[in-house]
């Protein structure tokens, strides 16, 4: 999957710049599934994730002139997808509670029993997380952003991001436990 993000599609991107519909379709086929899952993890709703995807691709194709080769096309597109997804969350009034200075010290790291780690279990537990927890968890865990980047994306402080992440992990664990996965 990681190979997708290496810009071996520079030629395709350039054809898109010239408005080639075929190249646009190729790009869509390459990135649609990955981007759909990015959106889905954040908005937690199939239909909304599709809306996000549609808007993001349209946005990307219409603004492709703005895309400079400073980053790969995949990362650029992912940023658009994430921003659009977060906009959907904001419409839902996601609360990013600021918890600066609270509990930043020694939070006990949550231990995940190996047996709890089952893909389907984690997915369904994530779906049950509050929006604020899920978005931080998915950006850090799945999209590989660090807390500084997450703070920038969500317009919160780094500490808030860290705390949200730790709480999200703890909540996820307790959800996995109560679901009785592998017990």
């Amino acid at each position: 999957m990681e190979t997708v993000y290496i810009d071996k599609h520079a030629d395709l991107v350039n054809e898109c710049r010239n408005g080639s519909r075929k190249a646009q379709f190729e790009i869509y086929k390459l990135y649609a599934t990955a981007m759909y899952n990015v959106a889905l993890r954040i908005v937690n709703d199939d239909a909304e994730a599709e809306d996000v995807l549609q808007e993001a691709f349209l946005d990307a194709f219409n603004r492709i002139a703005d895309f400079r080769q400073e980053t790969t096309f995949g990362l650029w597109l992912k940023q658009i997808v994430i921003n659009r997804s977060i906009n959907y969350l904001r419409k839902r009034k996601m609360e990013m509670v600021s918890v600066d200075g609270v509990e930043i010290a020694e939070e006990l790291e949550t231990d995940f029993e190996e047996t709890h780690l089952k893909v389907e279990a984690i997915k369904s537990a994530m779906a049950e997380l509050p929006d604020g927890y899920r978005v931080v968890l998915s950006l850090y865990l799945f999209e590989g952003y660090d807390h500084e980047e997450i703070a920038h994306i969500l317009k919160i402080t780094e500490n808030t991001s860290r705390t949200q992440y730790m709480r999200a992990k703890r909540k996820l664990n307790s959800l996995l436990v109560t679901k009785g996965v592998a017990r």
Binding site: M1, A32, Y36, N37, L53, L141, K169
Partner: peptide, 21 residues
């Protein structure tokens, strides 16, 4: 220990992405 979740997700990322538009 504490990075188990992170490691698991990294190793199994592909399996998380099964849904398609």
């Amino acid at each position: 220990m504490s990075n188990k979740l992170e490691g698991f997700v990294r190793d199994n990322k592909r399996e998380f992405e099964v849904k398609v538009p």
